[in-house]
Design a protein around this nucleic acid. Structure first.
Lengths: 197, 197
DNA sequence: CCTCTTCGCTACGCTACCGTAGCGTAGCGA
DNA sequence: TCGCTACGCTACGGTAGCGTAGCGAAGAGG
């Protein structure tokens, strides 16, 4: 018959399944953070999680499928406030981004995501949507500011996000320089001034 | 440790050695572009280059050493003109960077470099110096403009480079959006205006 | 209490790649 | 002509990881 646990409905599944699945995903996340997306091995995940290798294969057909779920589990969205003062709001958002780049788990996984997006056709859309979800709030906030006239009408939200976030990613991943609040401050004020010029 | 023939001294070496080394490096570059830095295997290089696996081991002690030379072989520096007009010079430089990001070999290898820099302690300094070599001309040009007063005295060249280049890298590697001349134009004019505000 | 699912475990066969050894050969330079 | 060097080739032994099979134990749920 139909398999009992398609993800569609909330057929409350066996607690054992839930537990082992959670342990596997968590371990797989850690593994990816440590060794990159190509360094993820089922056997490693098995050891880390304490879940038998066979059980992993009972839930995921192969390594790629597991990787997909790992990526999706990393996908968290970030809030951007709307106080009516776009400068302050973007400053807050960028400080949050910088903080995340310094400490958050997703930042550690970022190089793997980038690499995956470049090489792996199957994973590329996942990477793009992962990034997209994180970018959207800031872009929306900028678009709103354009509508209210707080920012000039010819500002392209998409490009503005790149000009604000890009330098932080650049320093964090390319040049490996610190992304301190002072740096954030300089970027925000410079870019906003430039957009209004 | 001691590499068989460091580039330093001009001990004119056997043409056969030169030829096989060149073929190996070239093939290894292609392999890294395709499979990432973790996907580089000696056997793959051997097949691609037509050079026997044993010969590769005669020149490099192991995979890591070869990888080091591959990275160094990618390291090309970019010219930044100095016409006296810093806006035009930076525009030119950024257009060149965008062109490289779209087509050049080093851009394809970039995700691997980033990943390597994040995970591999041995490769990290190499990655940093690779990036540094490419950044330097632009930073110098900006510093010169600050000295001549063409840019305000409080502009930090290092940060300015990040604000100019960062958005391009961001679009190319993070969001996978195009880096067209139009985008370059918008970034340059916005950032320069912001720096002068 | 009994059944049915899920799990852990061990043991496979298979592939890819590692790095090494040994042998025969081709060509350059004295 | 003769050596010396670098090369290609084949064949290893060893490791890591894949994905599968089969079995017995445990615990969730009726």
């Amino acid at each position: 018959m139909a398999l009992p646990d398609t993800e569609g409905a909330e057929t409350r599944l066996d607690p054992r399944v839930e537990r082992s699945r959670a342990a596997i995903i968590e371990a797989a996340q850690a593994a990816v953070l440590e060794n990159g997306y190509r360094g993820l091995t089922i056997e490693d995940v098995s050891v880390r999680s304490g879940v038998a290798k066979t059980t992993i294969y009972r839930h995921w057909p192969d390594r790629a499928a597991l990787l997909v779920d790992v990526f999706e589990s990393l996908s968290t969205s970030q809030m951007v406030p709307d106080t009516g003062d776009v400068d302050a709001d973007l400053r807050t958002a960028l400080l949050g981004l910088a903080e995340g780049l310094r400490n958050a788990a997703w930042a550690g996984a970022m190089p793997s995501l980038i690499e995956a997006g470049e090489r792996d056709d199957e994973l590329r859309p996942l990477v793009v949507s992962f990034v997209e979800r994180r970018r959207k709030p800031m872009r929306d906030r900028i678009a709103a500011a354009v509508r209210t006239g707080e920012l000039p009408f010819d500002v392209e939200p998409d490009l503005a996000v790149a000009m604000l976030s890009g330098p932080l990613f650049y320093r964090r991943f390319i040049t490996r320089q610190p992304v301190s609040p002072r740096v954030v401050e300089a970027i925000v004020s410079t870019v906003l001034a430039g957009l209004r010029a």
